[in-house]
Design a protein around this nucleic acid. Structure first.
Length: 419
RNA sequence: GGAGGGAUGUGCCGAAUUGGUAAGGCAGCGCCCUGCUAAGGCGUAGCCUCUAACAGGGGCUUGCGGGUUCGAGUCCCGCUCCCUCCGCCA
C-alpha cells in the first residue's frame, strides 16, 4: 500500500496514478473521507482512554474499596469507549480496505497506456531465427520427439496441464541448473520455499485486489493459497521483520512450482505448454534500500538478458505501460523470446520493482540511523518452462530433431534430441 | 488426529504479590572519555494521533482475536506457532 501521509499531501498525484493503472481514482477521495473520520474517532477514543487511565489510577491510589458511585462512573466511561471503539473498528476496516485498493503508483518514466498494446519495446537482441524449411511449433516438435503429452494430461487433470517427458525433463533441469549457477555466482541465496502459504500472507503481496483472488487456487479448508510464483513465499518470509541496513541488498533465488487458475484467459494460448495451470520457475527476489531499487531493477534485468544471450535465443525487452503494470508494481519490464512456431515474440521473463508497496503491507523494514524505513522489494524471472518452448522452436532442425544449446549440454549430456 | 508444556519491547535472556497498569541484563546502535585497543560513562522499542515540528502531549502494543473487570502479562473462550510424547506417514 501507499504511504498514508503521501496520499494526504498529494491526492491529485495519487488520483492520476491510480487512473493511469486503470483503477478508480475516486478511491482516493473515498479514502480521504474515511481518513478524516478515522482520525477524528481516534482523537475521541484516545481522550476517553486518557480519562479512564487517570480515573483508575485514582481508584488504585485510594486505600479503601472504591464506592459504588465511583464504580458506576467507571462503567459509564467503559461503555462510552466501547461504542466509539466499535465505530472506529468499522471505519478503520474500510480505511484499510480502500488503502489496499489503491495501486502502487507508476514511476515517472513508465509510459502511459491502457493495456499491453501500448507497451514499449526498449531494445532487441538478435534477430528472428531463419529457417530454410517451415518451422514446426513446440507442441508438434515435442509430440514427435515424445517430450510433451498434453492429451493424456487432459484426461488426467483437464486442460492446461502437461506431462513433460524424456530429454525435455533433462533440458528443464539443465535450465534451472544453469540459472542457479549464474545467480548464486552473483551472490543470490538459493531457496526452496513452501508453495502453499497462508491467505493473509498472500493478501500482503498485493495481487488479490481487482479480481486477483480469482486467479489463485485457494484451499479454504486449510486457509492456504497455492503460490503463483516463488516470489510470494520468498517475500512473505520476512513479513513483520526488520533488516539491518548492513545486510542490504538481500538477494534470493527460489525454485518453486507455480499455480495459476488462468481465469479470464479461456481459449487463449491453449495449444501446448505456453500457458499452464502448473509450471516450474526459478525466481529472483531482492530487498534493497529505497535509494538502490532502481539500480537493482536494472541489475536483475541484466541478469535475465545475460541468461537469454547465453542460450542464444533472440529476444526483446519490453517496458510495461501504466495500464499493464500489476497492482503492486511501480515499474516492470518483460523479456519476450522469439518463438518461430508462432512467428512472434512471447513473454518468458518478467521483472518488477514493487518499491515499498509490498513492504508496507507486510511490514518489512530495515534499521538505519534515525529509525526504520520500509525496504524496496523487486522480483524477476530466472527461468520458467516457457524458455523450453523457445529452445525447442529456435533450435529445431529440418528433420524434427532439436539441438541442445551449448551452455546446457553439460547437464543434458547430449548435443541433440532425436526421435 | 490425541496428551502435555511454552511464546514478555529491535536480536538473545528474563522479572512482575490474592488482577493495580511492563524491572533488569547481554548484544547491537549513537554520543562521551581514554594516545590506539581493551575497559568505562551516558543514551537508545515500535506504531497511531495532536502539531509547523526529528520539541512536547495523549493513546496503543506482553504470539493473534474475543470476553470478564473501574482496571488484565496475570482470569475465561477461540486460534496461530514452537517444543516433548503417542499415532500416522514420503
Amino acid at each position: 500500500m501507499l504511504d498514508p501521509d503521501f496520499i494526504r499531501q498529494n491526492p491529485e498525484k495519487v488520483r492520476q496514478g491510480a487512473a493511469s493503472k486503470g483503477a478508480d481514482p475516486s478511491l482516493v477521495d473515498k479514502w480521504l473521507k474515511t481518513d478524516e473520520e478515522r482520525r477524528s474517532l481516534i482523537g475521541q477514543v484516545d481522550q476517553l482512554r486518557a480519562e479512564r487511565n487517570r480515573f483508575t489510577k485514582e481508584l488504585q491510589a485510594g486505600e479503601t474499596a472504591p464506592s459504588e458511585k465511583k464504580l458506576s462512573r467507571g462503567r459509564e466511561l467503559k461503555e462510552k469507549i466501547r461504542i466509539l471503539e466499535n465505530r472506529l473498528a468499522l471505519v478503520s476496516g474500510e480505511w484499510e480496505r480502500l488503502l489496499r485498493d489503491i495501486p502502487a503508483l507508476p514511476e515517472e518514466d513508465v509510459p502511459a497506456g491502457k493495456d499491453e498494446t501500448e507497451n514499449v519495446v526498449v531494445r532487441k537482441w538478435g534477430s528472428p531465427t531463419r529457417f530454410n524449411f517451415k518451422p514446426r511449433d513446440h507442441l508438434e516438435l515435442g509430440e514427435r520427439l515424445g517430450l510433451i503429452d498434453v492429451k493424456r494430461a487432459g484426461k488426467v487433470s483437464g486442460s492446461r496441464f502437461g506431462y513433460l517427458t524424456g530429454d525435455l525433463v533433462l533440458l528443464e533441469f539443465a535450465l534451472m541448473q544453469f540459472g542457479l549457477e549464474v545467480t548464486t555466482g552473483e551472490g543470490f541465496i538459493p531457496v526452496l520455499p513452501p508453495v502453499m502459504i497462508k491467505k493473509e500472507m498472500e493478501a500482503g503481496l498485493g495481487y488479490g485486489e481487482h479480481g486477483g483472488w480469482e486467479d489463485m487456487y485457494i484451499l479454504d479448508k486449510d486457509n492456504l493459497v497455492l503460490v503463483a510464483t516463488a516470489e510470494h513465499s520468498l517475500v512473505a518470509r520476512y513479513a513483520e521483520e526488520t533488516f539491518d541496513e548492513k545486510l542490504l541488498p538481500r538477494r534470493y533465488v527460489g525454485f518453486s512450482t507455480c499455480f495459476r487458475r488462468e481465469a479470464g484467459s479461456y481459449g487463449k494460448d491453449t495449444r501446448g505448454i505456453l500457458r499452464l495451470h502448473q509450471f516450474n520457475k526459478l525466481e529472483m527476489v531482492s530487498f534493497t534500500r529505497p535509494e538502490d531499487s532502481r539500480r537493482e531493477h536494472k541489475y536483475l534485468i541484466e541478469i535475465e538478458e545475460k541468461l537469454m544471450r547465453a542460450l542464444q535465443i533472440p529476444y526483446r525487452v519490453v517496458k510495461m505501460c501504466t495500464g499493464d503494470l500489476g497492482h503492486p508494481a511501480a515499474s516492470k519490464f518483460d523479456i519476450e523470446a522469439w518463438m518461430p512456431g508462432q512467428n512472434k515474440y512471447r513473454e518468458t521473463h518478467s521483472c518488477s520493482n514493487c518499491t515499498d508497496y509490498q513492504s508496507r503491507r507486510l511490514n518489512i523494514r530495515f534499521r538505519r540511523q534515525g529509525g526504520s524505513e520500509y525496504v524496496h522489494i523487486l522480483n524477476g524471472t530466472v527461468f520458467s518452462e516457457r524458455p523450453l518452448i523457445a529452445v525447442l522452436e529456435n533450435y529445431q532442425q529440418e528433420d524434427g530433431s532439436v539441438v541442445i544449446p551449448e551452455v546446457l549440454r553439460r547437464w543434458v549430456g547430449k548435443d541433440k534430441i532425436m526421435g
